[in-house]
Amino acid sequence: MGANRLPGPQRQVRSEQVIDLGTMCRQRSASVERTGFIQHEVELQRPLIYFFGGAGDGDDSFARFESAYNKIADSLKLPKIYGIQHYRVRDDVFKKYSDASHEKAFFTWDTDRLVVLARIFRSLRFNPLTPICLVGHSYGGDTAMDLAETLAASYGGIEVNLVVTLDPVSSKERITTANIKSLLGDVADYIKSGFDQKELGKFKYNGYSRTKPKNVNLWTNVWAEHNYDPIEPSNMVARLGGPWRAQAAADVDISMPKGVVHFDADEMFKEVQSYVANFPHYWRGKDKRKEQVRQFLDKLKGFRE
Rank of each mutant, 00 (worst) to 15 (best):
L151D: 00
P128N: 09
Q45L: 14
E271S: 04
V32D: 13
R294G: 06
T165I: 09
D142S: 01
H137N: 04
L297T: 11
L300R: 14
H262G: 02
P257S: 05
D59M: 15
Y139E: 00
E232N: 05
V260C: 05
F65S: 06
S170K: 00
D60P: 04
E33W: 15
L129W: 10
F94R: 05
G83I: 10
G2L: 11
H86E: 05
Y50N: 13
I72P: 15
L78H: 08
V13R: 15
Y82F: 12
S171F: 06
R90H: 03
V164L: 03
R90M: 03
K202A: 05
T211E: 07
L114P: 08
P213S: 05
A118L: 13
A153P: 00
P233D: 00
I19G: 04
E103N: 04
A178I: 12
V32L: 15
P243F: 01
V216H: 03
S170E: 06
R64A: 08
L76P: 13
L166Q: 02
A63R: 13
D298F: 09
V135N: 05
D253I: 00
L151P: 02
H281F: 12
S138K: 12
V261Y: 09
N4M: 07
G56M: 08
R174H: 03
N161R: 09
K77R: 14
L76V: 13
R26F: 13
W244Y: 13
K301F: 08
M236C: 06
G22V: 09
S193Y: 13
R14F: 12
V276D: 01
K80V: 05
S209A: 09
F203G: 09
N179V: 07
F65E: 07
L134D: 11
A224F: 02
P243R: 07
D99C: 03
C25L: 10
F195G: 04
Q45T: 10
T130Q: 11
R113S: 06
S274H: 14
G201E: 09
E225G: 11
L117Y: 01
R88N: 05
K290V: 11
A30R: 15
V42T: 13
V276P: 00
A224E: 00
V13H: 15
Q247D: 02
Q85I: 08
L76N: 10
V261M: 02
S154H: 03
P230N: 07
R289K: 15
E232R: 02
P230K: 12
L162I: 01
S75E: 11
L78R: 00
A277Q: 13
E173H: 14
R113L: 08
L124Y: 01
Y275M: 07
F296M: 14
I158E: 01
R11A: 13
G140M: 07
K77V: 09
Y97I: 04
